[in-house]
Simulated scan of single mutants.
Amino acid sequence: MSGTFLLRIAVAIILLTHSVFGMFNNGINDFGNLFLNQIGFAPFGVFLAWSIKLSHVAAAILLISNKYVKLAGFVTIFILIMGIILVHFKEGWFVVGGGRNGVEYNFLLIVVLFAIMYPNGFRKNQQNTNL
């Protein structure tokens, strides 16, 4: 079992729960119609909302199966950054407590995805560099 196994499973659960419930309670359509279309994505808001959520499901499956993890990570990070820019940044840092709907949750997911994608850090050569 790899060191990132628990992180991959945890992020997959978060991505699945964040997406699947919206598929059955009209949340994805509402996000597309009532938010994305209203901020300039009309008439593609619903299509974009479904694309985002289906990419989360695909990323979750890839994380669980430990296949194409970097691709899944980069796509999800891009979506999370766009979420920060379009939705969360204007709300501040805190999700709850000192504020509401802020960037801290997306920030944490981005950092965890990078840790999953690069478990040994960003260095190409992992030789001992101590002098």
Rank of each mutant, 00 (worst) to 15 (best):
I61Q: 03
I14G: 11
Q38R: 11
A12S: 08
I64L: 14
D30H: 04
S2F: 08
V111I: 13
G27H: 03
N37K: 00
F78P: 01
S55K: 12
I28N: 00
F114S: 14
G83V: 01
G40M: 07
L54D: 05
G97W: 00
N33H: 05
I110A: 04
G73M: 10
L36W: 01
W93E: 02
L7F: 05
T4S: 13
Q127L: 13
L108V: 04
N128W: 12
I81L: 15
G121D: 05
N130H: 13
V57W: 05
Q127M: 05
T4E: 15
F78A: 11
R123A: 10
K124D: 06
A58G: 03
S51E: 00
F5H: 12
F94T: 14
K53P: 08
G22W: 11
I84W: 09
S65K: 12
F74I: 08
N37V: 01
R123K: 15
N130F: 12
L48K: 03
F107Y: 12
A12L: 01
A60H: 01
N125R: 03
V96W: 06
M82F: 10
V11Y: 05
K124N: 03
K90H: 10
M23N: 02
F44S: 09
S55F: 06
F31V: 00
K124G: 00
N29Q: 12
A49G: 09
G27M: 09
I79T: 07
T17C: 12
L113W: 13
Y105C: 07
F114N: 10
F31M: 05
G27T: 04
F122D: 05
W93R: 02
A42S: 06
F89K: 11
A60T: 09
A49N: 00
G27R: 01
L15Q: 03
Y118K: 05
G27Q: 11
N66G: 13
V20Y: 13
L63S: 02
N120K: 15
V103F: 15
V69D: 03
E104R: 05
H88D: 11
Q38L: 06
G92W: 14
I85A: 03
G102H: 05
G99M: 07
M117N: 08
R8N: 01
M82Y: 14
F47N: 00
G22M: 00
N125I: 07
M117Q: 07
L113I: 12
I85H: 15
I81T: 08
R123W: 11
H56P: 03
N128S: 09
N26A: 03
G92R: 08
I14T: 12
